[in-house]
Design a protein around this nucleic acid. Structure first.
Lengths: 152, 152
DNA sequence: TTTTAGAATAGAAAATTTTTCCGAAAATGA
DNA sequence: TCATTTTCGGAAAAATTTTCTATTCTAAAA
């Protein structure tokens, strides 16, 4: 599916602020409200827009401590990988988990309140998963950039 | 500010689907539409909800190649850091950038089309920033989990 | 325990937005 | 070129958000 200039503009705007109304968009794009509406519906139907979400301020909800945790498994049989991935997915502290190339097998982005909470997470949730080989934690000192918007 | 049970439920729902209507929420929470409305407005006003966004499917927009790129600077004077951070922030391929502890100074999450595009990004955008010492790229083989929802 | 001020709630009305409908225009493809 | 499909715009309908008012609840003070 091809995205013309209007589609791209719509996606840019909605990635920044999904509360923007069709009327506001119609004025910015110089289209009718219905045209904007139909385009958005098509983008949703095609799965290009996958969902609409509210983003919280991590500071305000006491989840401002971000850690990147790299994990090496002991074995790499299919079963181990699948079970590990299912268990990781179920942990709410883990916002992102990628199977990666390189020395470690997985890289996780973990959000917790503070170092104490991270220690608790490690001890009670991560290291209790067996077939974990080693882990390496990288603590974030400062968030420089953090967006969900993909440039088209 | 304290979040009671109703607030937390609202945040949970809106983090999953911000298109949910006040009426739908009011039924799930057993509250009136106005009560839900006022609570959401308060959560926005307090900055707990920071924004509403549309999320795109990276596959559908040809940005499914995710790379974690770690960067070491040559020097760590304030000026170098600030300039580096400003330049990194301006790059649309970089969705996330954190100043971190450990061997490397920064960790970036980069989204591009494929390896060729990543090479292009490295050569024309990253390595042209000066005062960069070394970089290490970790390629993602599979996305196991990727959410924006913070558990309260 | 009672009183009182402030916050939260519910219901109805108003305002705005989304969604549908339909005819016209524009693009597409044989 | 013609036929088919897609896109578009305007108006009407449906749904949602927002405002308004009165009432209920809550917690602190008397």
């Amino acid at each position: 599916m091809k995205l013309d200039d209007k589609d791209q503009q719509i996606l840019e705007y909605l990635q920044q602020d999904s509360k923007m109304t069709n009327k506001q968009l119609s004025m910015k794009l110089d289209l009718s409200v219905t045209a904007v509406y139909e385009r958005i519906k098509r983008l949703e139907r095609e799965g290009i827009i996958s969902k609409y979400v509210a983003l919280l301020n991590p500071e305000k909800v006491e989840k401002a401590f971000t850690v990147f945790c790299q994990i090496k498994l002991i074995q790499h049989t299919r079963n181990y990988l699948t079970r590990f991935e299912a268990e990781i997915t179920s942990l709410p502290e883990v916002l992102e988990c990628f199977h990666v190339s390189g020395e470690y097998d997985y890289i996780l982005k973990v959000l917790v309140k503070d170092m104490a909470a991270y220690r608790e997470f490690m001890v009670t949730k991560l290291t209790t998963l067996d077939h974990i080989g080693s882990t390496q934690s990288t603590f974030t000192i400062e968030k420089v950039k953090n967006t969900t918007a993909i440039k088209l």
